[in-house]
Design a protein around this nucleic acid. Structure first.
Length: 550
RNA sequence: GGGCCUGUAGCUCAAUGGUUAGAGCAGGGCGCUCAUAACGCCUUGGUUGGGGGUUCGAGUCCCUCCGGGCCUACCA
């Protein structure tokens, strides 16, 4: 959710500005964790993943994520495309077969990744050291170093080294091309490029990497036309097939709609219309290496004209009240629970205005309460309330007529225009926090205006002047709906509906937009747009989601 | 161990090497009465983690120490 919300914000903004947008997201369904979770739930892995996808889809809908398609990496489209890329990479000489020894758990009937093996650290004697590293003394380990090794999955000590064959991607052959490409991206976030450069240059540089695993669940690595033999029962590594799903996802969409391949290819093939596409990816920092290096190797190495990413926006982590979110400990409020407490706009606003762009961010209930109550209820919600209720009381539920067309001077319009342009700049730069701050300042400007104009005073002596002020205030609210829609789509839509308007045209010309709704236009006075979070609720939630110390 | 990020007001965060380090919230004062006990104006508050250096000038660059975080290639 941390990176999906900013992606949704950006997609909605671009649509609002009239751009054609294809916003894709998918569940990554392969890998050891998915297999184990399914086994734990006592379900076939395919069934389990289908259920999980549905859960994620419901959450996405609940948060109003405006995906054009929400795909699955286990789709037939992705299987075909993943195998296609593997074949292309093999033809380009970028894949090699390696036979190696790996730990096999007889009881579990599977090879175990290093992390799934525990034992006593030969260095410090810590009894729960993992196969890759000891959490106690931080020493790097190899599973064969462990004393009394056992499977994390079953606890079985019946482990043995077995020979197994895997495909390796010769990423190192592409090092120079990747390095040039990364260096050309001067405007990427430091977080993105620093992670990429670290992997490119550290130690011996970018290394040949295994792209298959000994699993039952995944895209089969052995298929018709595969130039390698003896890979039965092997699947591609999740991080080989998952990014390819970005592409396959578009085909899932057009297939589902019964539309031709040309319609997804124009987004993805630079020889079929994608040369004017701007491709932006949003992700948490843990995913950066796969998007800056391994996926580009797949794309570039294929020798085919696939669209390469133009901008990668990466985020740090969101922590919960002094520590990490923890599913097992019930620490933290999770996305499905969040929606049962409050509507999506409340969460969107907080999560976006506090997006962990420069450093890890922290969620606290106090901070959340203050943000929602102050920004949404007091500044924006109350502004809409005071304008509509004043109008209803003095002029009825129509935009009033009379007075000057615009009751403000050029300086007011210039100032508001400057703020709108600044907001656009921040949104285009994907500076999420700064955009939120600018939007809030634009809301505040509405309250400042009302205070200075004081239509409640003017109405006593010069009703026409007051009418003009209120008329402009309605138009200000309409502008706020348009500007705010990427952040708080539900509130924007309900307010726009209350205004009896469905023209979401972007206020390129702020002055013109301030007279868009004319006298006589009927409206309905909206109910409380954002209710406040009470101290009692906050206290209760704080306790409910504090978790149990393990 | 190595690499990267980070440390700025009570809290959350800003500040292309360039006036006196700024916002929001919290605190204090005043105003307003249309509004969701809301809004507006003014205001208190800083040895920019410590120390050293470069520079006409350092929150920003360099060194060092301290604290927090991430990564280190079979977790994904």
């Amino acid at each position: 959710m941390g990176s999906q919300l900013p992606a949704d914000l950006y997609a909605r903004y671009l649509r609002g500005r009239g751009h054609e947008v294809l916003f894709l997201c998918a569940t990554d369904e392969h890998g050891t964790p998915a297999e184990l979770a399914a086994a734990k739930a006592g379900k076939p892995v395919a069934e389990y993943c289908a259920e999980m996808h549905q859960v994620q889809a419901d959450i996405a809908r609940g948060f109003r994520l405006s995906f054009d398609h929400f795909g699955r990496s286990s789709s037939a489209q992705n299987r075909i495309l993943t195998q296609h890329f593997a074949l292309q990479l093999a033809k380009a000489g970028l894949i090699r077969e390696v036979t190696e020894q790996q730990m096999y758990s007889v009881a579990d009937g599977r090879f175990l990744p290093d992390r799934y093996i525990e034992g006593t650290c030969p260095n410090c004697g810590f009894e729960s050291a993992r196969g890759d590293q000891c959490d106690n003394c931080t020493k790097q380990l190899d599973p064969v170093d462990l004393i009394n090794p056992r499977s994390v999955i079953s606890g079985s000590t019946e482990l043995e080294l077995r020979e197994t064959k895997h495909l390796y991607l010769r990423q190192s052959d592409m090092r120079a091309a990747l390095s040039d490409w990364i260096d050309s991206k001067q405007d990427w976030p430091i977080l993105t490029t620093s992670i990429a450069k670290k992997w490119l240059n550290d130690g011996e540089g970018l290394q040949v990497r295994g792209i298959t695993r000994d699993l039952h669940w995944g895209v089969p690595a052995q298929f018709d036309g595969a130039p390698w033999q003896g890979m039965d029962g092997k699947v591609f590594y999740v991080w080989f097939d998952a990014p390819i799903e970005y592409i396959a996802c578009a085909k899932e969409m057009t297939d589902a709609q019964g539309r031709p391949d040309a319609e997804w290819e124009r987004w993805w093939r630079t020889d079929k219309g994608a040369q004017d596409v701007t491709y932006t990816q949003f992700m948490g920092k843990d995913n950066v290496p796969f998007h800056t290096l391994s996926f580009p190797v797949t794309i570039l190495g294929s020798g085919e004209p696939w669209k390469l990413v133009d901008y990668i926006k990466s985020f740090n982590y969101l922590n919960y009240d002094g520590g990490q979110f923890s599913t097992s400990r019930g620490r933290g409020v999770f996305m499905d629970q969040a929606l049962s407490l409050l509507p999506p706009d409340y969460w969107r606003w907080w999560l976006l205005s506090h997006a962990p762009e420069s450093a890890d961010a922290e969620f606290t209930w106090e901070n959340f309460q203050v943000s929602v109550n102050k920004d949404l209820a007091d500044v924006l919600g109350n502004l809409i309330s005071r304008v509509t209720k004043f109008c209803r009381a003095k002029f009825g539920e129509v935009v009033p007529e009379g007075g000057p067309a615009l009751p403000v001077g050029a300086d007011f319009i210039a100032d508001l225009t400057a703020r709108v342009r600044a907001y656009e700049s921040q949104m285009e730069a994907m500076e999420v926090r700064k955009a939120a701050a600018e939007l809030r300042a634009i809301w505040v400007a509405g309250n400042e205006y009302l205070q200075a104009a004081a239509p409640w005073t003017a109405v006593k002596t010069d009703p026409a002047a007051a009418a003009s002020m209120i008329r402009m205030s309605f138009n200000l609210i309409r502008i706020y709906c348009i500007l705010s829609r990427p952040f708080i789509p539900d509130a924007a839509a309900s307010t726009m509906a209350a205004l009896g308007c469905d023209d979401w045209g972007w206020p390129d010309d702020v002055e013109a937009a301030l007279t868009h709704l004319g006298a006589g236009h009927a409206f309905t006075t909206p109910e409380v747009l954002f209710r406040k979070i009470t101290d009692e609720e906050r206290a209760e939630w704080q306790v409910r989601f504090s978790g149990t110390r393990a």
